[in-house]
Design a protein around this nucleic acid. Sequence first.
RNA 1: GGUCCCGUAGCUCAGCUGGAUAGAGCGUUUGCCUCCUAAGCAAAUGGUCGGGUGUUCGAAUCACCUCGGGAUCGCCA
Length: 675
Amino acid sequence: MISRPYDEIKLLIENYLKKEFSTKSDLIWSKPPSVELGDISFPLFNIAKELKIKPEELSEKIIAEISFPDIVEKVNLQGGFLNLTFNRSIFVTQVLQTILEQTKYGQNSSLSSERIIVEHTSSNPTGPLHIGNFRGSVLGDVLGRLFSFLGAAVNVRYYVNDLGRQIAPLVIGYFLLKEAKYKIEEKGDLWLGKVYASMYTFLEIQQLKQKLSMLGWKIKDSSVSLYRLDDTDLKTVPEFLNSLPKENEEKDNTHKWFMKLTRIQSSLIERIPEVYEKLNKLTSSKIENLESTTNQYVKNYQEGKDKLIVEKFREVTKIALDGHVETLNLFAIFHDDFDWESDVAWSGEVQTMLAELEDKKYLRHDEKARLLKNDIIAEELGYKTKYSISYEIPDTIIINSEGITLYPCRDIVYHLHKLEKFNASQCYNVIAKMQQLPQLSVRLALYGLNRTDTADRIHHFDYEYVSLIGRKMAGREFDYVTPDELFVLAQEEIKTIIEERNYSEEEQQNIANKIAASSIKYHILKMDPQKSVAFDVKKAVDPNENSGSFLQYSYARALSILSRSSKHDINVQKILESTEKENLIIEKQAEWELVKLMEELPSILIKAAKSLRPDSVANFSYSLASSFHKFYDACPVLKAETPELIKSRVRIVFSISKCLESLFEVMGIEALEKM
RNA sequence: GGUCCCGUAGCUCAGCUGGAUAGAGCGUUUGCCUCCUAAGCAAAUGGUCGGGUGUUCGAAUCACCUCGGGAUCGCCA
């Protein structure tokens, strides 16, 4: 493999410094502020300081003693910066040759010794994916693709959270409607979202009413249904709460709760009237006590012995999961394996695990509830020292006061064996930042169970949540933006542009689909995962603003040039295969900048993987595409002035198409030949 | 109150293992299709990098303090 100029030069100087002065400081390279100064720059301050000489002096030595290869045309010193100017012709010839020789430019084996699990999405099966958890899908997908591109064996997993308490009301509601032969005419997960929002509201209204009756409100006299706040309730409840003495601690909170539920109820009645009303009637007539039925369902499913209940939960979860997979596939996001939380629970290992932690005194009792002593474990077993944590880590509840195990229990057991499932060396859990503490306690529990090695290989790749401009995102109120919905909106926008071009109906549809997917994916990917973002639907979907289509457009333009070459009597194959030793020509600034950027691609990918920044791939891609568009405008290819220029530019165009193909593969974006 | 994250142009964001004059897109103003796809290009406009102190030859970048915003901190996941 031909080495890359930037690295090559850096290595040359580095080796010299090490050999001659055995320096310890890292040599770093940067780009000079303007091309007149050079193409690559080495600030020598740190190393000069280490050697206790002036940067100028060091630089003079370097210039005098290193014999630079031909690719370096000019060396000069500018106030402590050693600036090198490349011989453009040699540089370009070398870089483009490297690109042509590799099947996939930028692909390498830097991670080939790794086996990596990436877990992502793992969304609750209570509704469709929304852009919040979809952000995790995109980040996880690209992270996996990146690792894989760099030679790692990658296994992408989805943890199915089918044991949560919140699913029970959904299951109950789903079967009420099914038995009533209610017709479903939409995507399954979206439909479940409606059922879930309704049923959970009923459950909460019941709980509110129970609370009120504990405070002295006469529940039976006022309410038609236990699961509805009717006109009488809306009048009598505030009156009742007002009549309570001011000292009553519950007064304010209950009032707030009441207001919140009133709002949710009316919002649901407005948004999904049919499902809501139908379900309300069915629940009122068939379920005497939703709360206790819910608890019973949850308990039965956790035990896994009641076959009917198991079938019911699985049926509902499967519908949600299928919906999620369908959505993800639209965006070329795929999982290799699905792990069910219920399977973990039924394995019986939770009890063994708890017993061991108990035995080691890592559990704290508070009545029936049990907490994991995070801080004690972290302190005693060196976690704090290892990761330099100086504050106190709060304990986490893993069994509630009813004696029911909470999800961290399953999560701990799951992670005991997760790495084994793929014989993995590393595992990245792409999970929202708000799960920080639970994720930490999983690792701490593993420490407590004497599995520090496993724990240290598990990483929480956290990302911030997504909010909506001008809207809230609330699953409970069936108010969220789904990727499905964005996809359709984007398609429509794109079609208005394609209509002006001469494509068949079928082609139009195909192009619109692919651009819609890439635009949305790109829009989400390019944001720093650590930033909580305000998501703007209009921008995400607008092809004139969105840079996903900008990337694809640059690829289409490149291919368009190549495909039209024969009309100009230019044989691309011949140019590419030509083994003549003559060097290529660079005439304009635009082409020079483009080639230099292409050179950087491999190191950008390695850096992105190392620093876990999939978003940096997106941002680099943008720079590259932008640079190509500038080239496209400034440098005619097929109509270039001389045969030599044509030859050089054809090679550049072919190379950029290869660069983009690599980047598209890493980002999971489809390359379109025309658009 | 403790912890974590964020605060860069009117808006949405890059840049952060310290490097030279702070970078895009959108917006507003103007040009460019007889020439490889105008989903593009060129130009103008726009910034006390939240504020302060420190470390340094050099700070948007590092440390400390401070002010804003978000998340989380015992029974939902």
